[in-house]
Design a protein around this nucleic acid. Structure first.
Lengths: 220, 220
DNA sequence: ATATTTTTTTAGACCAGTCTAAACTTTTAT
DNA sequence: ATAAAAGTTTAGACTGGTCTAAAAAAATAT
């Protein structure tokens, strides 16, 4: 069984590798976990000793099949708990991240199955991120960055990249939350800000905000 | 903020002191937490340094007002989570202890308030134990040991002393769970086993089982 | 191609929590 | 009253996770 800390490292590495097999560097991990490179090196050795990652000195780490599976199980728990907090306990969308960060480490496969059933097998969490199934399969909705869409684009907000609390609060306030319909009306040349229509309300989004909003793409 | 371990010690000491100010011995704590006396001594020093308990060498520890309040907050969380698991996730009464043992350490006062509301402010957990309110007040239902009741006693099962999984499973199987009406029909002189009526079903309970069942007393 | 900068690793230390073994108190038995 | 037994504390060591400072490797600049 993995420790609390090992689980956090695994999750961080998975996210940095963008789910794929991309190599991840020591400093990236250190920054994400607010720790020092030396600590990361230690943990990396431990985790590769347990075959969750493969490690070549000075060249960073890659996740193994086993590591990915473990990371997905943690992500599944995180997203199910977030869904619970919003749907059942009436939390706001932007308040749940830190609590789910704790809940994701609770050890009980049965609990997670029952929670999943209680929530009626949700496909995505309140931020629009897909919830892996019990076998670690992720159903991906094709999506792209709002900032990169062409004028006249119409679709839905599916997710927000950054989980920074102030960004989430802001988006919540202006009503730009996952699931909402969105239309791209105009791009301002000067600061690259966007004028958009969210559920019939006109909004202006700055470049850094638009870059963090992911929207649905119709696969053709 | 208290560590996971500190919280567990505090809870154990509270239970051993039976909520009161009774002094608790080092070995008792060690046994309850499956640890060694030497480890307990170390932790005791730490906890008394933080004013959660008062400590006199060789004479055991007593909880301070602060310590009690902290312990009650953990117990409140534990019992609310147990209630959630049984009422909402359809767990059996006897499966929830270990999971609640983990969940009770989640840090978020707001979460507990919302959970309490979601469960409709329950007064007791599925084992019949009272749930302390947010200020640490416990509403006690007068109760006594089934084994000590006189012939013809009529009342309700309010709780089970021992939280051992095999005992809980057994009681669940025979239907002797908290909340159920119970009547004492007979005492067998030879082995001190009891013949009882639980919701109109005749059952025979051995002495060690009957000693662990707490039943309601009408205060006169 | 070599020097400089950046990144990563190693070495050694620290903290929390645990343990064993030995020393010390208190209690119990005679 | 004293010896033996039981319970508690201390001393010192270990593990998991962290850190700083120094050494080593890789990337970059000239």
């Amino acid at each position: 069984m993995l420790s609390y800390t090992e689980e956090n490292y695994l999750k961080a590495i998975y996210h940095l590798a963008q789910g794929g097999t991309k190599a991840v560097l020591t400093n990236e991990i250190a920054e994400m976990l607010n720790t020092k490179a030396a600590s990361v090196t230690d943990m990396i050795k431990k985790l590769s000793g347990k075959n969750f990652i493969s490690y070549e000195k000075y060249y960073g780490v890659k996740m193994t099949r086993q590591g990915k599976s473990e990371a997905l199980s943690i992500i599944r728990k995180h997203r199910l708990w977030e869904t619970f907090l919003v749907q059942k306990l009436q939390f706001n969308w932007d308040e749940v991240h830190d609590i789910a960060e704790q809940l994701e480490h609770i050890q009980s496969p049965l609990l997670i199955e029952k929670l999943d059933a209680f929530l009626n097998y949700p496909k995505a969490d309140p931020h629009g991120e897909p919830i892996p199934d019990r076998n670690g399969k992720v159903q991906v909705q094709a999506h792209g960055c709002l900032h990169e869409q062409t004028l006249g684009y119409k679709g839905c907000i599916v997710a927000v990249k950054d989980s920074d609390a102030t960004l989430l609060k802001y988006l919540n306030k202006i009503g730009a939350t996952p699931g909402k319909k969105i239309e791209l009306l105009n791009k301002e040349a000067y600061d690259e800000s966007l004028e958009v229509l969210v559920e019939n309300k006109k909004l202006s989004l700055s470049k850094p905000v638009a870059q963090n909003i992911l929207v649905s793409l119709t696969t053709r």
